[in-house]
Design a binder for these strands. Structure first.
Lengths: 148, 148
DNA sequence: TATTATTAGTTGCTTACGCAACTAAGTGTA
DNA sequence: TACACTTAGTTGCGTAAGCAACTAATAATA
């Protein structure tokens, strides 16, 4: 196996992540959001009513990170936290009208980045790339989850 | 194009980046290094004598980030900064004996992560994945560089 | 040659994130 | 029922990173 490749995977992932954040920050600035919040919002669009913990777990993020991201989303009026009497620890998350109105904007921002990064990939390559990235991230998850 | 995919690319990249950092931090702790330094060291192994600016440029990182990463590497005894009389602004970076001794360790840590993430990929898939990631990061670079 | 522009590096500020310690609420068991 | 365990969420702390303002050195130009 070519060493260059092994050295480079991390570099490419890192670059894609950092540049992706720069792009997202730029695009989201007008909506008072940053790269640290949109993933949570994206999950909520498909799963309204999740708790913070479920959300953190879905994204494989630290619950502290989730707490702060959601606090920001709440502060900016995108989500509401509701406690029900069943279990007072749990705060279920609901989208506001503002969030619903923002959904298509977020979608197009996300497809924007997707188009940029996959510009010169064929449809087949694109599909294959997604499949491989999915596999790789599942591998990463499995490995680190087994560590604990 | 399936929306799930477009939503997910960012999520996978983010996950691979975050989990990769957790892995690297864990592996590098014993050497008093963190995820924020190893990329700089890796580039220097192949290009001793680069300046900070060249290094930052190679990795597409902010020069402030580079300054701090290299300060850490210097503090821990992995690199030395040398100023030559030709241009006193430039500090060329050289590896210490400690860094040279560490090279193979870093290589195997990096291949470790590479093997973990590509565990169930065939050799062909692996090669193809690298090619696609390379393309995607080049696209990201091109896009953001053209913004300025 | 004097002044202006560019360049390399540093530093303050902000955001994103993981980890760990903590609180409060809920569950289980002796 | 009392005490231990678990769970959801919060918060302090440290690291990684980008941006912007700054300094000092060099290059360019009037």
């Amino acid at each position: 196996m070519d060493n260059t490749k092994q050295h480079s995977v991390g570099r490419w992932i890192s670059l894609l992540h950092r540049y992706g954040n720069v792009y997202m920050n730029e695009q989201l600035k007008a909506y008072n959001l940053g790269a640290g919040q949109y993933q949570f919002l994206a999950v909520l669009y498909d799963n309204e009513g999740l708790s913070q913990d479920e959300l953190a777990h879905t994204l494989k993020m630290d619950k502290g990170t989730a707490a702060r991201a959601i606090a920001k989303l709440e502060k900016e009026g995108y989500v509401e936290r509701k406690t029900f009497s069943v279990d007072k620890r749990i705060k279920k998350l609901y989208l506001t009208d503002k969030a619903h109105a923002f959904k298509s904007t977020l979608t197009s921002i996300l497809s924007g980045w997707s188009s940029i990064t996959t510009k010169n990939l064929s449809e087949d390559e694109h599909v294959f790339a997604m499949k491989l990235l999915n596999k790789m991230s599942l591998n990463a998850e499995t490995y680190l989850d087994e560590m604990k």
